[in-house]
Amino acid sequence: MTAHSPITNAQTMTFPESARAAFAAAYPDQPARLCHDLVGHDLLTLDALATLAERMPASSVEYNLGKLPLGVRPEDTPSNGLTLGETIRTIETNGSWAVLKNVERDPAYGALLDAALADLEPIVRAATGPMLHREAFIFLTSPGSVTPFHMDPEHNILLQIMGTKVMTVFPARDEALVPAQKSEDFHGGGHRNLVWQDGFKARGTAFPLAPGEAIHVPVKAPHFVENGPAVSISLSVTWRSERSVAEGELHSFNALLRKRGLPTGTVSARPERQGLRRLIYRVMRKLGV
């Protein structure tokens, strides 16, 4: 894709053949470094993103000071004292972090998401079924900012557009990192941030990212991000699958059982196959048990 051109040509690929091959080898359970062709796109400049942010609802934006401890509690996250537009336009010097959520609700950014995921859809469908609940998020970070240790419920690919960062990714389903009760709380609406211990770092793999590079992050693989010496813009394209939905249902089922003092069950590496437990959970939820 040439810089400054909107995605209108169905033959234009966001992810070249080498990236699609690397993704196919890793998906859904392993992180993988990929490459992409969105650097320089008109929709992903600071000015374009500031304009987008100013017309988005407050519920779809989050921003705060960026130099945070890896294990900061959500309630301790400090404000930067600026408006969102000011935060983005002066992000080079204001020491902040911002995320624009669900940018796919804007038609132009929705087309950007659809084009990116179209490259990967056949691979995803073969492994975990249809792509469900597709979303896009844009992260803007000042030099030296840190995104604390956390996890996300979606299949995720983070595309680096401007600047550099290092994402350190940890294995999913490691209960030393994410205890079972934390997963249960998370799927019940609990915060994404996780408790950090210094001994965890050796369990992770660091992935340096430069413009034109990307990383596949498996569902609920814990990670943290350290920004480089320049402003960073990253685009996150995400989706759910029957597997990720099933995992959420099974952890929610365990939360119901634990609340009633009943034995909880194991959530397997293939939760979509645990049909009976999922059915029982859906019946209990429907009945309000």
Score class of each variant (00 low, 15 high):
S96Y: 04
I91T: 04
K182M: 11
G188H: 10
S268I: 10
W97G: 01
M13S: 14
T205M: 15
E121P: 01
Q274Y: 06
A210V: 15
G275T: 14
S145I: 00
V225A: 11
H41W: 04
F207A: 10
V231P: 07
R282W: 07
P171I: 12
A118Y: 04
Q160L: 12
L34Y: 02
S5P: 04
R173H: 12
W97F: 12
A118P: 07
R240K: 13
S236M: 06
P211W: 08
K259L: 02
G66N: 07
E62G: 09
G261F: 05
F139N: 04
K259N: 07
N193F: 11
L65G: 00
T83L: 06
M151T: 11
S268L: 07
T238Y: 00
L194G: 11
G199F: 08
S18Y: 13
I7P: 04
T90K: 05
R243L: 07
A127Y: 01
F170Q: 02
F207T: 10
L38K: 03
E247K: 05
G188E: 12
Y109I: 02
T90Q: 08
T168A: 12
P222H: 09
A127I: 00
A210S: 15
H223R: 03
S183E: 13
P69M: 04
A202F: 02
D42R: 11
S234W: 08
P208N: 08
V99Q: 01
P130W: 01
R243Y: 07
L262W: 10
F149L: 12
P222M: 06
L194W: 03
R273C: 00
S5K: 12
I7H: 12
P78N: 07
A180M: 10
S142M: 07
S252G: 12
A98S: 09
F186S: 00
R285L: 15
S145D: 10
I88R: 00
W196N: 08
N80C: 13
T77W: 03
L250G: 06
V103T: 02
T77P: 03
S96D: 00
S234A: 15
L117H: 08
G95E: 11
P171T: 12
F253Y: 15
R105E: 14
